[in-house]
Amino acid sequence: MSMVKSPSGVRTAARVVNATKLYGRADSAVRALDNVSVEFQGAAFTAIMGPSGSGKSTLLHCLAGLDTLTEGQVLIGDTDVSRLNDADLTLLRRNRLGFIFQSYNLVPTLTAEENIVLPLRLGGRKADPQWLAQVVTAVGLADRLHHTPAELSGGQQQRVAAARALISRPEIVFADEPTGALDSRSSADLLRFLRHAVDEYGQTIVMVTHDAVAAGYADRVLFLRDGRVVDEMTEPTADRILDAMKGLGE
């Protein structure tokens, strides 16, 4: 897994180049992404924001290999995602990416621990016990490992999902509105853990959110509108983000 180094010496974990995504037929097509080019740095926490319909989720899905671009390229490391077939995409997701969705992150029949190690087991691998213990402790679930999702609170479920996303030490973790269904306290717990993962383990995280507070945990915020990247902010705070969002007309 070689990493592409940018001239500045910071590695680039993922890139989109001239990405365009059209939905629908040619005559009534909706342009969800309009010639977007953007890089995501390694070991950094990037938030993508924008009003609904801005294309932020589409960008994330295309990056994660869940959706395909109409035109342009997606590179994870130096792998051209747009050239992979379904089987290779599956392996890419299993081995090199992690996911946290807004809700329904866990398989209801499996316990918390089984859910966490699922990506490894699907690949026929065993979890490194030390790493597992470290992640589980960090998300504060050591005493909840043998519970099924139905026995966990929403916040706990999302933290299990976060642990799962990290278990295979993926190149990038994609989070799609991970706090969307959580109360503010649970949100804070989850976001602190994600921040911790970036700072302590050098994890790369790309998160779509519409919550300025959540985005405030990131190193960098991208603002999208009408399928284009219209603004960018480093070292953001919730207040500055809110101002920027107002500027976007939200």
Binding site: L91, F99, N105, L122
Partner: peptide, 13 residues
């Protein structure tokens, strides 16, 4: 949904 999730986290067809 569950199947979609499994596929997303790396279950092959």
């Amino acid at each position: 949904r569950e199947l979609g999730l499994l596929r997303a986290v790396g279950m092959t067809r």
